[in-house]
Design a protein around this nucleic acid. Structure first.
Lengths: 353, 353
DNA sequence: CTCATCGCTAAAAACGATTGCAGATAACTT
DNA sequence: AAGTTATCTGCAATCGTTTTTAGCGATGAG
């Protein structure tokens, strides 16, 4: 047990507790070296909890994500941790798409952490109301809550992602393009769909209403949505899928139905993966730097924590970009398939909104 | 701010702090309902840190992994979190293959958490010595530290994994089989290699020393190791790669060199992935249930925390199993490639060692 | 020689809860 | 109604720090 307290050290040296405390805080103290020695001898370690009680800080930042096994969220968490440096450590919460768990967790965070990085489940949620109004510094990542959208956030340029995808498919000659989207109640689900739909409209490409399917960001959802699209009397010839997991589901459905990509169906996903260029055919995707998103969120949060609420909230966006591989056809002819993508240079810029 | 303390509540009701405290702890109290009302009115929330100081508990479990962006570790963390239930929350630390960061983190954990689930970087590490001897309940997952291997642990049956892989390749007629292993200084690196090597010996298959390459569990490492093997005057015809990332690296190398799988090179990996059956060709792997490993670790840890050290440490192992797809050849002919693997049933059993 | 200044120190008061103890109130007995 | 328990209560101590306050001895100026 770390039973040895500051008072033991003080007693051993023959000074008061306050002197030891001051020594620990870096003040000049008369018997510095003998105190130091005593600390080593006794293997004294300050009780963090007591220190926290006095200071009112915990040294913890909550990172609340839907599911850490989604590589995209894992990257966010990693980025956040790296940016946190030595001062703060990460408390991880998976909400698992469960609204009850989400609000339970949020309520619990008050007083346990100094700040929160938060990927909410739904835009119309009132989960944040659980928190006392100004008590917990918070930054949204990837998604926001509608009624709190004036708070700090670090999103991706989802609208532009949808636009890039639509444009890319149209440029490849497609005119029957479907979209498997995330929940319309989530920030990226909505924005990606909007970018897609509005771009097609601007390009005068007809978009039957059955071609826009709202799904749920899961593999199963993507699979089912694809199956539904394939069951239509007149199928689409191309597919824009709004996240990584649904894209996997879509690919499984296409494979199961024996539909060749990109000949019978072109497909473009959202969010890159190390395996994306190894699937058959290599997957064209819209990508963005999730690590950077996490890091920016942490940075923003730390500014808030350190600076009080003196700065106005800021809404950041990271760029998206198109990674062309083979799954949309044609370009794979021009592409040197022997070009290794390894090692990959990670460089995504960010810009203020 | 959660400025309102138990004393405010007491004052408002006109009782002593201890009465409010007892009410909160579920004791029978005379003016229970008026206290309850006051708590609601003031929106009082107990200060967790103060409570922790008194109780000596923090309600936190540290989960220390090399890198959360590796899906395998993400699953461990998720499994651990699920098994933790309501009582404990997760503090996540990525050591990032950095020994200094690892011991820094471990030292820091004392007093901050009630227990630790720990994937150490190296078997011969002395990182655990940072901790006071019996102060912090701990369970190793996936890897152990040699000198502490009598402590609790939840490993995979790595030796059997190596055996299954070797046997599978031999059964497919290969006699020139190479192994790209993890660091020999890590538990799974060593055990998988041993299972592989000993099985080949038992089967009387010759194994040139250059065919056993020690790498580092990274994508880059797998890539370089594969390149080295391909540069040999007499190449292997099959490859057993000891983890998920190195397998990706190996595939990238093979693709870059234009070597067809499985015709020119069969390959079997370790650890499954949702994308594994979508790569070209579908990847045969040794898999195990990482989620279960994490859950078992948490369960074991909680027993330790609740029961004191009255129980002897236990070493658990989860089963591995062979998932046959196309990357080792032949079987893909007999395999109905249209069979979807979705939805996937997750069921791995565990057994005590 | 006196008084202010400086650099440090110990003692005591927080931080916000829980808990042992002794006393007060309530609930039964007879 | 008085005596005996059984419940519930407030006081004060405690958890291990930090921080404020007041004071102490040495130094330097006038």
């Amino acid at each position: 047990m770390s039973n040895v307290t500051i008072s033991d050290v003080a007693k051993k040296v023959g000074v008061s507790e306050s002197t030891v405390s001051r020594f620990l805080s870096g003040f000049k103290v008369r018997n510095a070296d003998v105190i130091n020695q005593a600390i080593k001898d006794l293997d004294y370690r300050p009780n963090i909890v007591a220190r926290n009680l006095k200071s009112g800080k915990t040294g913890l930042i909550a990172v609340v994500v839907p599911d850490i096994t989604n590589p995209f969220f894992a990257s966010i968490v990693r980025g956040a941790e790296v940016a946190a440096g030595d001062e703060f450590m990460i408390q991880l919460i998976n909400t698992g798409d469960d609204l009850d768990k989400e609000s339970w967790a949020l309520r619990r965070m008050v007083g346990r952490v100094d700040g929160m990085i938060y990927v909410p489940l739904q835009e119309n949620s009132s989960a944040v109301d659980e928190l006392d109004n100004r008590s917990l510094p918070m930054v949204f990542v990837d998604r926001v809550i509608e009624k709190n959208k004036n708070l700090d956030s670090v999103l991706a340029d989802n609208f532009r992602g949808g636009e890039l995808a639509a444009r890319h498919l149209v440029e490849h000659g497609h005119s029957r393009i479907a979209h498997i989207g995330g929940p319309i109640s989530s920030t990226p689900g909505k924005a990606r769909a909007r970018g897609f739909v509005e771009t097609l409209r601007a390009l005068k490409v007809d978009l039957p209403s059955q071609f826009v399917v709202e799904s749920d960001f899961t593999t199963l959802g993507g699979y089912q949505a694809t199956m539904a699209l394939l069951a239509l009397k007149s199928r689409p010839t191309a597919l824009f899928v709004a996240n990584n997991l649904m894209t996997i589901g879509a690919l499984k459905a296409l494979k199961e139905k024996g539909i060749s990509v990109p000949q019978e169906m072109a497909i473009i996903g959202f969010d890159d993966h190390e395996l994306s260029d190894l699937v058959d055919p290599p997957l064209t995707v819209i990508s963005r730097d999730a690590h950077l998103q996490g890091a920016l969120a942490m940075q923003t949060l730390l500014e808030k924590i350190r600076g009080g609420n003196q700065f106005p909230p800021k809404q950041l966006k990271v760029d998206v970009n198109l990674v062309v591989r083979g799954s949309c056809g044609s370009t794979c002819r021009y592409r040197n398939s022997k070009t290794s993508e390894f090692p990959k240079t990670l460089s995504a810029s960010s810009r203020s909104k």
